[in-house]
Design a protein around this nucleic acid. Structure first.
Lengths: 209, 209
DNA sequence: TGATCATGTTACCGAACAGTACCGATCTTG
DNA sequence: CAAGATCGGTACTGTTCGGTAACATGATCA
């Protein structure tokens, strides 16, 4: 087995484009998200990547492992988003929570986020032994842990409960985004979350307003 | 086209079992939910229904229309659940809300509910012209309207906001159920919803008892 | 210059898929 | 009993799918 990245970086400058492996991942990310993991074939991915099926199979030994790589990339992006937010608001847990809500909940045009795609994929993968499931679960666990840690550090009351509450709100907004559409109940997510944060300010529950 | 239901009820008593059309619907409901609309073929459905593909196609002219019928049944069940809850707690909007939360959120063993399956199916159906999409959308709209109406009738503050809040919580719990598992943040849904209802009791934080 | 490696291309395989034709058995109803 | 309908079983079509074999091309590097 030769090294992959170093060898490819040699071939990367062929015509200024990305190497085929990267193009395949980009295309897979788009198509898997739009049509579902089961709704798109490897040939369509290869074509969208500007290559062919054979080259795809030279880089991914099966479609399941390509799916796993797709999910691994999404989980990685999720973790990266948390890091970026932490760097943007160092030491300010509440600001980090708000930034996260803005990022994952402010889906006017943006749904390139990872959480929703991970959940969607998890729904479509019924096999519990699928090589990609562990990335879905680890991403969900990471997200929950980091959100809980932020809530604890923010000084708000009942942080664990608040973290789960925020988690469910965001996940619900994303889930309903496809079935109800962008005008659904998810549109008011930011307002709801803001009210929720306000209600966890004091020792007692205060109504939002 | 001959009448369907009357002709079939004649054949219903063949050996005490359901007629094949009903068996197909039951099997499709189970398999579509477990493996996804795209993850199960018509032959597997027919076999699970104790019949064969030919009989299936005598009752459903295509797989897409079988999927549509599946979604129509789910939407119908959603509406029926609301009616049952209304009959169980007549005139008591708050009790109806609590009953709904218990029903759709108290998923220890039960996930025969329809909302989650509808959302899951919506995710897997990328084609906006699919004959089943209208049932998904109408079910979501119905659920939101009825929940909003209940919140308005309950005398709680900011009913529309509360309705969307509850909707997102429940939807988030169901969405995370598959990716995170039953021990995920959805486990505390009932407690979260109870606290949310309490926080919407009065204009100011002064619960009567 | 020649060896090497990744890539592109075409063709192919076996399986599964949606959907159909046909036949025989069974049941209801006249 | 006979007509008519449904149902089950088998076999079939054409397509698409995941995956592979074989060969040609073009770039890199010794």
């Amino acid at each position: 087995m030769p090294a992959q990245l170093s060898e490819q970086s040699v071939h990367r400058m062929r015509d200024g484009a990305l190497p085929p492996r990267q193009r395949i991942i980009v295309a897979a990310r788009e198509l898997f998200y739009r049509h579902g993991v089961q709704g798109v074939g490897v040939e369509a991915i290869a074509e969208a990547a500007g290559t062919n099926k054979m080259t795809l199979y030279r880089h991914f030994e099966s479609k399941d492992l390509l799916v796993a790589e797709y999910l691994r990339g999404l989980a990685e992006e999720t973790a990266r988003i948390w890091d970026e937010i932490a760097e943007l608001h160092p030491g300010d847990a509440l600001a980090q929570i708000r930034a996260w809500l803005d990022r994952v909940g402010g889906h006017g045009e943006r749904h390139d986020a990872s959480g929703c795609a991970l959940v969607n994929a998890a729904i479509q993968i019924s096999d519990p032994e699928h090589p990609g499931r562990k990335f879905v679960e680890s991403a969900a666990r990471t997200r929950r842990e980091r959100l809980t840690a932020l809530c604890c550090a923010s000084g708000l009351t009942e942080p664990e409960q608040l973290a789960d509450h925020l988690f469910l709100l965001v996940e619900g907004a994303r889930a309903s985004y496809r079935s109800v559409g962008p005008d659904g109940p998810g549109a008011g997510l930011c307002a709801l979350a803001a009210a929720l944060l306000a209600s966890h300010r004091a020792t007692d529950h205060a109504p939002p307003g």
